[in-house]
């Protein structure tokens, strides 16, 4: 347990100095499902030094309008993939959304959803993964 806490603190310290970019976390792409106010992922994104654009939505995992996500101009987009059996990540549908800073800057990343959606010790692995995706400069 102590080791896990230390790793969390290390992440917090690493991202403390940086900005807090707007993050769109895509739990499911179609229909678009995102983490809301109460969800674990929203909390993890905070710790990893980002701000989820859907952090103020009512329920845990609300369905979200694609255009609402685009309008909130996320700087980082994280696509959760769900274990190997579901295949690759569909990057294609995001490529056309050229007004989104994350797309413009090439900051569309896949993250391992299995590490982030369930409580347990592996969440710390997930947190480190999130932090690296949101603040790559802090882990060079």
């Amino acid at each position: 347990m102590a080791g896990l806490r230390a790793r969390v603190r290390a992440v917090e310290q690493a991202v403390a100095a940086g900005s807090r970019p707007r993050v769109l976390y895509v739990l499911w792409p179609e229909p678009l499902i995102v983490p809301g106010r109460e969800s674990l992922v929203t909390e993890l994104i905070e710790i990893a030094g980002g701000r989820s654009i859907s952090a103020s939505e009512g329920t845990d995992y609300p369905r979200f309008a694609l255009e609402a996500a685009v309008a909130r101009a996320p700087e980082v987009i994280l696509l959760a993939n769900h274990s190997a059996s579901t295949g690759g990540i569909d990057r294609e549908r995001w490529r056309g959304l050229t007004s989104v800073p994350a797309i413009r800057d090439g900051r569309l990343h896949a993250v391992n959803g299995d590490l982030l959606h369930r409580y347990g010790p592996r969440i710390v692995d997930g947190l480190e993964q999130l932090a690296r995706a949101i603040h790559p400069e802090a882990f060079r």
Binding site: W28, E30, P31, I33, T86, R93, G96
Partner: peptide
């Protein structure tokens, strides 16, 4: 049998769901 994590998407899709497609 397939994957619990896909359920959210499939349930919405089974209701009939229009999307922006490429």
């Amino acid at each position: 049998f397939v994957d619990v994590n896909r359920l959210g998407g499939v349930i919405h899709w089974l209701l009939g769901n229009l999307a922006t497609i490429p």
